[in-house]
């Protein structure tokens, strides 16, 4: 079991990460291109992971890196690529006074939360998780003990949620068919119809020819009357002019037959 050391430089981590994270968070909001926003978001997520590590949460540190920077941001980047990297926001206000009232609402929200937070008084420093972690022998073990006892129903509900989400995403992202796919019955019916209307042979095309000198696919087959069967050679070869001339091929065979005939004649002559 690999122990992930919790950062001891709590203060150092906070001082380095907090301003960076706030800047990057502002970057998410202000960047014109969604890709830049996604990159800023990656920075915020990594900063948060570091702060989790600084706050005695090594398990969440790892989960944050894997789930957020690993999975969720990849998903965001995929969608940004799908939808178009260049989609920019229009600057026109569709609602009148949208920006003004947004700023007012945000200021109000800030005041509200800050007041609520500043009400809380924490006497002394944080308790720390040393005791809680020691009970089960570590942070991950402690979390596991809670997850599989007190929160086990919630954990099972989460599994249902994840399965529903996966199926929902498949249903939503499923594309419509652009055109009907032709299957075997339709193709067969099409072939027979072509035969009935245009007289095109419904079966497979003839093989290439077999000659004494060659049986390559560029050698056309011959019909019973000695003419060339057009469909026995691929259209590609025909258009490239790579088809072997039949007369050349006949030459070898014809010569051989001529020899045989001559020998036969000689033998017959000797017999007489």
């Amino acid at each position: 079991m690999i122990e992930i050391p919790a950062l001891t430089g709590d203060l150092f981590a906070f001082v380095v990460c907090a301003p960076l994270m706030v800047l990057l968070a502002i970057g998410i909001v202000l960047c014109r291109k969604p890709v830049h926003s996604a990159l800023c978001m990656a920075g915020v997520m990594v900063g948060l992971a570091v702060l989790y590590a600084a706050q005695d949460a090594p398990f969440l540190f790892v989960v944050q890196i894997i789930v957020y920077t690993g999975a969720i941001l990849m998903l965001f980047l995929f969608v940004v690529m799908l939808i178009g990297v260049d989609t920019r926001d229009s600057v026109v206000e569709t609602l009148k006074g949208h920006r003004f009232w947004t700023i007012v609402a945000i200021l109000g929200l800030t005041a509200l939360i800050l007041l609520a937070v500043s009400q809380a008084v924490f006497v002394g420093g944080p308790t720390g998780l040393a005791n809680a972690n020691a009970q089960h022998g570590g942070n991950a073990e402690g979390l596991a003990a809670l997850l599989f006892t007190r929160y086990v129903v919630l954990l099972e509900a989460t599994s249902a949620l994840l399965i529903t989400a996966a199926i929902g995403a498949m249903v939503l992202a499923h594309g419509e068919k652009l055109r009907e796919v032709k299957r075997q019955p339709e193709k067969a019916a099409e072939r027979i119809e072509r035969y009935a209307k245009q007289g095109i042979h419904p079966g497979p095309d003839p093989n290439s020819g077999v000659y004494a000198g060659t049986n390559a696919i560029s050698a056309p087959a011959l019909l019973p009357d000695g003419s060339v069967a057009e469909h026995s050679v691929s259209k590609v070869l025909t258009s490239r002019g790579a088809v072997v001339a039949v007369d050349d091929l006949r030459g070898a065979t014809g010569g051989a037959f001529e020899d045989i005939r001559r020998v036969h004649a000689e033998l017959e002559g000797e017999d007489k």
């Binding site: 949460a57 998903l75 809680a132 979390l143 809670l146 997850l147 929902g168």
Partner: peptide
Amino acid sequence: RQHGGLDGQVASFFVMVVAAAEVV
């Protein structure tokens, strides 16, 4: 960390799970 209990981290874990489903 302030209160010395792990329940907060469990809650955070569940938020992450729900966030993942929500993003999808």
